[in-house]
Amino acid sequence: MTSLPYSQSCENNKAAIAAILEDAFSQSTHVLEVGSGTGQHAVHFAKLLPHAIWQTSDQLEYHAGINAWLTKSPSSNLRQPWLLDVLKPWPIDPATTPLIDSIFSANTLHIMSKEMVSAFFNGVGKHLSAQGQLCIYGPFNYQGQYSSDSNRNFDGWLAAQNPQSAIRDFEWITALAAEQNLSLIADFSMPANNRLLHFEKNR
């Protein structure tokens, strides 16, 4: 069996994120997690939201690790990962796929290129149902400024790994969301200088 991938940051932030998702996704029936990564968030949140299907997704290289976590900590509402590349058509057929009324993504937008971030929001706009919920977790800049020295240092590290990666501006993210008929419901302060942005898709 594939060894379990592990992220300490996932362990550190899962409780704070869960406290918000339990409210934001309280009426959800089908949650799509874009970029499930190690799979740690999926197994934790699915247990706390038993009323909703939790659909994992990521690029193929992460699937073995996600499935290993799903095997270790199964839940009846957890689903094996979809192959999802935001730059390609999402694997969602409205004729056969249950209505996606919530989307969650954590620590992804600063890894993606700007083109991928735009494509992510285009996909959300296309596939999230009316009055659907979108929650995005990660670091953001405000008015072009870092919110902490640690975020400034992290942004430098990101650039060294991949020049196309960067902490994104809150204003740009909310503008992309607005283009897809999404309204910002709340901007939550989170541990380690991160944020959780909660959007709702308008009718």
Rank of each mutant, 00 (worst) to 15 (best):
I17V: 15
G35N: 12
K47L: 06
Y6G: 00
S75V: 00
S147R: 15
F45Y: 05
S28R: 03
A15Q: 15
M1R: 14
A52M: 03
D187Y: 01
H63P: 09
E22D: 12
M116I: 00
G138R: 06
V124P: 01
H41F: 06
Q133D: 08
T97Q: 13
S26A: 15
P74T: 04
L99R: 07
A119C: 08
R168Q: 13
M116C: 12
S75L: 01
H51Y: 05
H127F: 11
D85G: 10
Q8D: 10
G156D: 01
H110C: 09
H63F: 07
S7T: 03
F45D: 03
Y62S: 14
R152A: 10
A119M: 02
D85S: 10
F104Y: 15
S3V: 07
M1E: 14
V86K: 05
E200P: 00
L21V: 04
A46M: 08
F154N: 07
T29E: 06
D101W: 04
W157S: 14
E171D: 09
S26T: 13
T97E: 11
N12I: 09
T97F: 12
P139M: 13
N77K: 06
P191M: 11
Y6F: 15
G35M: 10
S150G: 03
N202T: 15
S118Y: 02
D101K: 03
V117N: 04
H63V: 09
